[in-house]
Design a protein around this nucleic acid. Structure first.
Lengths: 344, 344
DNA sequence: GGTAACATTTGGAGCGCTCCAAACGAGAGT
DNA sequence: ACTCTCGTTTGGAGCGCTCCAAATGTTACC
């Protein structure tokens, strides 16, 4: 009566067998054009929609891949997702997204969720606890602006994960050198917890040392959020007041949101950006592009990252035994209006 | 061998029948504690995870609800989602999110996707084309900061949709009155396409008329994005220059992103916010709360909206024949630092 | 001691689909 | 006319689980 039509209903209406309907559904070759049409017509008329559950159960494949990101609030993921879909959509795969922060907040393990869902592959673009991805038996791709360390552990252990990531070390160096090249010497770095921040920091410190400039790092023990950006910037300003050379002339923040916090602190202190101090962010998130913000930033190519990750997933599904791949994307600085040469 | 363990494997290992395992899985009553433990132990040891597909197929229910939002890039949805999950998680439901813009970009119908997935209910928080939700046979709830118009059509047709929404008309009035009460008279409104913007505009116009002030609307034919906010603000400024009273002393934007565009235009024009002109946004998106922005805005209570929508979905699943419900949430203004009294 | 009443456990019949081996037809070749 | 092919179509056996009716144990009560 009112129940959802099944493949049998379609078959009956089209005057063929359920098997033929199934073939049409997956548009197989060797189906007579007339029958194909008849089936399509019946599908149309009945408003039939195949049941994913049944199909998944029978075929042992959901043709879906899971994407784990860390926080929906950080728009970083949007481009990443667009990249992932750009390669998975044409291949007929569906992608489901979960937010690590949100899942954990409600006491769930998102990876379990994905596995219960029978995803065919998993793309992890968040700093997930290693044990969470320990023995995932589906193709696993690690993607991140994110640094590799916690992931290398996993992939070395069982050789099963492909990884594609922005090179955060290089990005940190790039940022510092960019500022150095513009004549800055007192360059503060606003950092925070977590692997990506740590690598960016490391790169920054190295570049500063090479240039013979003193590394000035703040906020290491805080989050990589706006509040800590604000706080760390204040510290940098206070330290600069008491210390030798005065306040920094440039600031490199571990990400765009922290940079935004820094800009608030600078404005509150009566300092102008970029006239008095230059601010450089990281991620090239949508935030940075707003006309009111115009933040110069380091671009980790998140869209490309997503596309590469998706391709790796596809490749591994095709060839599960192929040697794992690694790909590092070289970051680049995006000039907007928050950075300029020193006046000094 | 290497295959995923099934319920039978667990049963065998625990020395019980598959049915008992199934009971334990859905923690049914009337199961002896000892057996329950044994089953749990076996599950643990085997790393067993139930197959959602099989369970969905057998039980004719996925215990999942779909949430359709309009654009991942607009962080408006984050709180909405949190609200939805806050009621659905405890009830044991899973929620899957799709982004209308993204789905359409890849030529898919997200609702079809949800239905193929057999969601038990659908929450639509985007301005989906009516035909898209036409004959959805699952409980449907419409949620929005979004105005009701396009939805009322649908729900009146078949009486099957519950709706909860922010009252955009009231919000528009509220915004205008708020500014009026602070002594502003030349209050420009930056608007755009789409039902929510239209209703906010209508409210604004009414309140202005009631106060005997002239409505000044710009940007109606553009999007509700940053670029149009910028452009509309420029127009308002130019018009003010030529016309009678000078540039507006206050601006009410149809949403926060447009307000941000307006702030950029104002800054470029050498005008300060709020000293020279007040800016009021709408949505109370995360954007507005950044220290660097501190945008005063109208709060549509998106979290509560999500929670109410989820509850409605739950209620309707429990009682499919209950009369449809309507709920309008009264917006409120959130004071930050972008609005102040007129000096005049 | 026997049995009713309940608590606990179990096998079987699907859920709607895919996939396979087998059946069917219709020309082509001899 | 009769095989052979090859392209097309079909029934049947699951996929891993839920749900039901029925079986089995256990306790209590007469």
């Amino acid at each position: 009566m009112n129940a959802r039509p099944t493949i049998y209903d379609v078959a009956q209406r089209a005057g063929v067998s359920k098997s033929l309907v199934s073939l049409v559904l997956r548009d197989a070759p060797h189906v007579a054009e007339a029958k194909r049409e008849a089936v399509k017509k019946a599908i149309q008329e009945l408003g039939y929609r195949p049941s994913r559950a049944a199909s998944a159960l029978a075929s042992q494949s959901t043709r879906s891949v899971g994407l784990l990101i860390d926080d929906f609030r950080n728009p970083w993921f949007v481009e990443l997702l667009a990249g992932v879909r750009s390669v998975l959509d044409p291949a007929g795969y569906t992608v489901t997204v979960a937010d690590l922060r949100l899942e954990e907040a409600s006491g769930r393990n998102p990876v379990d969720g994905f596995l219960a869902q029978h995803v065919d592959a998993l793309v992890v673009a968040a700093e997930a606890p290693p044990e969470m991805v320990r023995d995932v038996r589906v193709p696993l791709v690690i993607a991140g602006t994110r640094s590799l360390t916690p992931l290398l552990g996993k992939s070395l252990d069982d050789g099963a994960a492909d990884v594609v990531a922005g090179d955060d070390d290089a990005g940190g160096q790039l940022a510092a050198r960019h500022l150095l090249a513009l004549g800055h010497r007192r360059i503060a770095h606003l950092s925070g917890q977590g692997a990506p921040a740590e690598h960016r920091r490391r790169g920054y410190v190295r570049a500063m040392a090479e240039a013979g400039a003193e590394p000035l790092v703040y906020g290491v023990d805080g989050g990589t959020d706006e509040a800590n950006g604000f706080r760390a910037m204040r510290q940098a300003l206070d330290a600069g007041g008491r210390a030798a050379g005065g306040p920094p002339t440039a600031v490199f923040a571990a990400n765009d949101v922290m940079a935004l916090g820094a800009m608030a602190a600078l404005r509150d202190a009566g300092l102008r950006v970029p006239e008095d101090v230059s601010v450089l962010g990281y991620d090239d998130s949508p935030l940075a592009a707003y006309g009111y913000i115009r933040l110069s930033t380091v671009d980790g190519h998140s869209r490309r990252l997503g596309a590469e990750a998706a391709q790796m997933a596809l490749d591994r599904m095709a060839a599960p035994a192929a040697p794992p791949r690694r790909l590092l994307l070289e970051p680049a600085v995006v000039e907007r209006s928050s950075v300029r040469e020193t006046i000094a």
